[in-house]
Write a protein that binds this DNA or RNA. Structure first.
Length: 572
DNA sequence: GCCGTTTTCGGCCCGACTGTTTTCAGTCG
């Protein structure tokens, strides 16, 4: 049995929670949480590192003790300290930590005094009025906890980035109606363009705070107000999303933006650097004693602590600070760098628009080239094309190309990788195409080795160009299939194959961490929309966001190249 | 529990809001 990084991180987090409930040293708890984050963000499997005899102490934030604990965990699947603590503090208390308004101290009290262990226990205790009899608990706290339980059971999941955009747009439009508002930005994980967001953090600079807050809490979509003060307020929208508003003076906008954008780990790291330089960073600015050295812009603050400006997408404490210090940050790719799209579908299979309509939309989007990649026969639910169907499409593309002025249509296919690693179309036909996009669309549950070798065997075919949605995950819906991604990236590099970053908002596959791994290994990537309708070409933006989070630059992505150069790359 | 061109011991980011209590602890970001 191999234990995955996410499971190791989960166990460390659970241990940290229980320790916190027991009242352990807060810095020790932080060390465990920090280690959980480091492991969770790692692109390589800890189990592999351990098997190779690597010393985990080399990882930042992991010392001798944690290294030994994690090694044991990777080897045996057990974390003895966790087992030991669970013997006296029930593991189920972890569930209570997820409830808004309930932290370790209160959980400790309700467990010790009332024997409450689960959310159900808690609900019934509140119903019987047992909670409000405890010292430090009152009626309002009770109501808040009840609301927290309700909110948790109703809206457990984070929301996909694409789904939150209209919410942000209408809210910011509303806030701008207030005369006092000068600048406005949606910060938080939204600004870092994370694939999902948990809540919204809106930052406003204004001449006067009070009227902005008053205006905010009157927004028509608000279900309830969580808190309302003189500089910040928090609400739930009717959709369940929490929105935090923070208002600062224009002179502090940069400092507040930095603070509110996060990530928390990035903030802690840069504030630590400030402390080392005898400076202090807070949401109002950067200070030497009483003297303010900056705060109007984020750049000012980074500069004061000797760092070049760090793009929001990189602020995850994954090496960006060291890179900023050495002036070695990547020049991140932008939407403008993209020249074409290498994956889309038409009505020939499961797209909603004709070849002509897709071509027109791609041209209007500004593309120089577009690959038409309908499904192959094996994917019967999508009415995949057989040999004859593909040959018909090839002819139609030739005809259309002779009419098009600005755009070139590339002949292609989204061909299934079959169980034995062969492609679902004879090579003799694949050779007629400009490129191939190859996908796994069935047998998601093969064992890791088998699935990995299925893909690598497919790449051995010289007709293989792009591996589409390489891990197969669907955000909030389906786990990635079991594959050795590092081996696949190496195999792609050796064979001149390309890895796709599929820009569909529920795929974003490869994810940010694997994009960076591919870049570090030196494999090429393509950012493609997999558009099934004309409007979906706009999904390219989401691919770009994810690519930027993965440190990708223009040169790492093949569809930033002019057509001629691209064709050379596709020759393998 | 981690970490070190001030330190191998003594620090560890910083502030706002709420509820309950009467000066502050707990929670959150």
């Amino acid at each position: 049995m191999t234990i995955h990084n996410s499971e190791i991180a989960d166990k460390l987090n659970r241990l940290a929670n229980l320790l916190e409930i027991e009242g352990a040293n807060p810095f020790r708890i932080r060390a465990y949480r920090n280690a959980a984050r480091i492991i969770g963000n790692l692109s390589k499997d800890v189990s592999d590192l351990v098997a190779q005899g690597e010393n985990l102490c080399d990882l930042p934030g992991i010392g001798q003790d944690l290294s030994e604990k994690i090694t044991t965990l990777a080897q045996t699947g057990e974390l003895p300290l966790l087992t030991q603590i669970e013997a006296r503090t029930p593991a189920i208390l972890n569930d209570l930590m997820k409830i808004e308004g309930l932290g370790p101290k209160r959980i400790q009290v309700i467990y010790k005094k009332l024997g409450i262990k689960s959310i159900n226990d808690l609900r019934s205790a509140i119903g019987k009025g047992r909670l409000r009899r405890l010292h430090g608990f009152g009626e309002k706290t009770e109501q808040k906890i009840l609301q927290g339980i309700e909110h948790l059971t109703e809206y457990g999941q984070r929301i996909k980035l694409a789904e939150i955009i209209p919410v942000v747009e209408s809210l910011t439009r509303y806030l701008k109606n207030n005369q006092a508002v000068k600048e406005i930005e949606c910060a938080g994980s939204f600004r870092r363009r994370k694939e999902t967001v948990g809540d919204l953090d809106i930052l406003v600079s204004a001449k006067e705070n009070k009227t902005v807050i008053e205006h905010f809490v009157k927004y028509g979509e608000i279900a309830d107000i969580i808190s309302e003060g003189s500089t910040r307020a928090a609400v739930h929208l009717r959709s369940g999303i929490q929105v935090d508003l923070r208002v600062v003076s224009p002179g502090s906008f940069g400092a507040a933006l930095l603070y509110f954008t996060g990530s928390k780990e990035h903030n802690i790291a840069i504030r630590k650097i400030a402390v080392q330089k005898n400076l202090k960073i807070n949401e109002y600015g950067i200070f030497k004693g009483e003297k303010e050295l900056g705060g109007r812009t984020e750049e000012e603050i980074y500069k004061q602590i000797g760092l070049s400006y760090i793009e929001p997408e990189l602020r995850e404490d994954r090496g960006e600070i060291a890179a900023a210090r050495k002036k070695q940050l990547p020049k991140l790719i932008t939407l403008n760098d993209i020249r074409g799209d290498l994956h889309c579908h038409t009505t020939a299979t499961n797209g909603t628009a004709s070849l002509e309509a897709m071509a027109k939309a791609a041209e209007e989007f500004g593309h120089e080239y577009l690959a038409i990649t309908d499904h192959s026969e094996h994917l019967s639910v999508a009415h995949g094309l057989d040999k004859k169907g593909l040959l018909t499409q090839i002819k139609a593309i030739d005809k259309l190309n002779s009419k098009l002025k600005k755009l070139v249509i590339l002949k292609s296919i989204d061909v299934d990788i079959l169980e034995d690693g062969s492609l679902d179309m004879p090579d003799s036909i694949l050779k007629e195409l400009d490129l191939t996009v190859c996908s796994i669309h069935n047998l998601f549950n093969l064992p890791l080795k088998k699935q990995t070798e299925r893909i690598i065997r497919a790449m051995d075919n010289p007709c293989f160009n792009i591996l589409s949605h390489p891990t197969g995950r669907l955000i909030n819906k389906r786990q990635p299939y079991a594959i050795d991604i590092e081996r696949i990236i190496h195999a792609a590099k050796e064979r001149g194959c390309i890895l796709e970053l599929n820009a569909q908002p529920d795929r974003l596959d490869l994810n940010d961490i694997y994009c960076k791994l591919a870049k570090d290994i030196g494999a090429r990537l393509a950012i493609s929309t997999d558009a099934h309708s004309p409007s979906q070409f706009a999904y390219m933006q989401f691919g770009i966001y994810q690519a930027r989070r993965g440190w990708l630059e223009k040169a790492d992505v093949v569809n930033t190249r002019p057509l001629k150069e691209l064709m050379k790359i596709l020759k393998r």
